[in-house]
Simulated assay, not measured.
Amino acid sequence: MQMYLLGLIAAFFVTIATVPVVIVLARKWGFVDKPDQRKVHKGNMPRIGGIAMMLGVAAGVAVLWPQLGETRDDMIFLIGGALVLAIVGLVDDRFALGAKTKLIGQTIAAVCAASSGLRIEFIQIPFIGNWEFGYLSFLVTVIWILAVINSVNLIDGLDGLAAGVTTIAVLTMLIMAIGHPIAYASVIVLSLSLLGSTTGFLLYNFYPGKIFMGDTGSMFLGYAMAIISMMGLFKSVTMFSLIVPLLILAVPFIDTTFAVIRRTLNQQSIGTPDKGHLHHCLLAMGYGHRKTVLIIYGISLLFGAVAVLFSQTANWVSLVLLVVILFGIFVFAEGIGLIGQKRKPLLKALEKMQLVKKYE
């Protein structure tokens, strides 16, 4: 336990120590986020805070490496994927890459990770049993990594939002793994390192933030969470190997799903930015920046608690809970998206389809 605590502290303090340096370098080299009509911040903000988090995670892993008990050859591939994302993120934070170009870079990183041998080979579906992927496991793994990367990337719209939601998700996975320290040593090592890094970064990033994580940070966080989930949750032999990771990552996944639907109905590219995300809707309802972030934290904590509960509950109870939760998600999202926001791209699209009356 002392060694685990030391790794957490190392990640925390290395991140804290490197953020001020990153802020100076970001301003000097032009890695700044300029305000526009879609963004909520004012003034140029340094936005490569992800570099500090990467260094923090590296420090934590270096301290905790002996806890793995053996050398993990797959870490070379996983590190390679992280480095690819770091390069793509840095270029994007400086020159604003197109969505397709970023997707190519993300795919290369995902392929690196899948090439390590760490793959989603099956999932457990309630009352059905194992669904083996066989030769498709490589493709499923790549798709999962891409989904998590882009989900985290899309919710990174307010100070402290992506880092806080990630912290809650990682803490949930850590709690579930800590009961089996031998089987899930890698999960514990990576989770503690990531937890120390994100909490350290939040000291600078929570509203009013002094630095943004940028795509360098958001893509890295998504990548790291995808890797941790595959090391632990998808290796489970229980019925929750599909449900639990979806619950833990519910907030970014739901927001991304609605973004895809919204943009498709508006005949826009899926990669086109807009102001229809959950945090934008909450802001439009009159909640302040800090309160909006805290509300989404609360929702994330709820899903995390339910995920832990699912792993300890009888099958039929889990199914009932799942139906209730999904219904709640639908009602909440519809209420926010169709009532809270004065200007709704989705509603305008529905008007054209004559599914709702014109909104004034």
Rank of each mutant, 00 (worst) to 15 (best):
245 P>R: 01
245 P>A: 04
246 L>C: 06
246 L>F: 13
247 L>F: 13
248 I>E: 05
248 I>Q: 11
249 L>V: 08
249 L>R: 00
250 A>M: 12
251 V>D: 05
252 P>S: 10
253 F>C: 08
254 I>K: 03
254 I>Q: 09
254 I>V: 15
255 D>I: 05
255 D>M: 09
256 T>W: 05
258 F>V: 00
258 F>P: 00
258 F>G: 00
259 A>C: 07
259 A>Q: 07
259 A>F: 10
260 V>L: 12
261 I>S: 06
262 R>E: 12
263 R>L: 05
263 R>F: 06
263 R>K: 13
263 R>N: 10
263 R>A: 07
264 T>Y: 14
265 L>N: 09
266 N>W: 11
266 N>Q: 15
266 N>P: 08
267 Q>D: 14
267 Q>C: 10
267 Q>G: 10
267 Q>M: 15
270 I>Q: 12
270 I>D: 09
270 I>G: 10
272 T>A: 15
272 T>M: 11
273 P>C: 09
273 P>E: 02
274 D>I: 02
275 K>N: 12
275 K>V: 00
275 K>Q: 10
276 G>P: 14
278 L>F: 10
278 L>Q: 09
278 L>P: 09
279 H>G: 00
280 H>A: 01
280 H>Q: 06
281 C>L: 15
282 L>M: 05
282 L>W: 03
286 G>T: 04
288 G>R: 08
289 H>Y: 02
289 H>S: 00
290 R>Q: 12
291 K>L: 14
293 V>P: 08
293 V>G: 12
294 L>C: 05
296 I>W: 09
297 Y>L: 05
298 G>R: 06
299 I>P: 14
300 S>H: 06
302 L>W: 07
302 L>C: 09
303 F>K: 08
304 G>T: 07
306 V>H: 11
306 V>D: 08
306 V>T: 11
307 A>V: 07
307 A>N: 03
308 V>I: 14
308 V>S: 00
309 L>A: 14
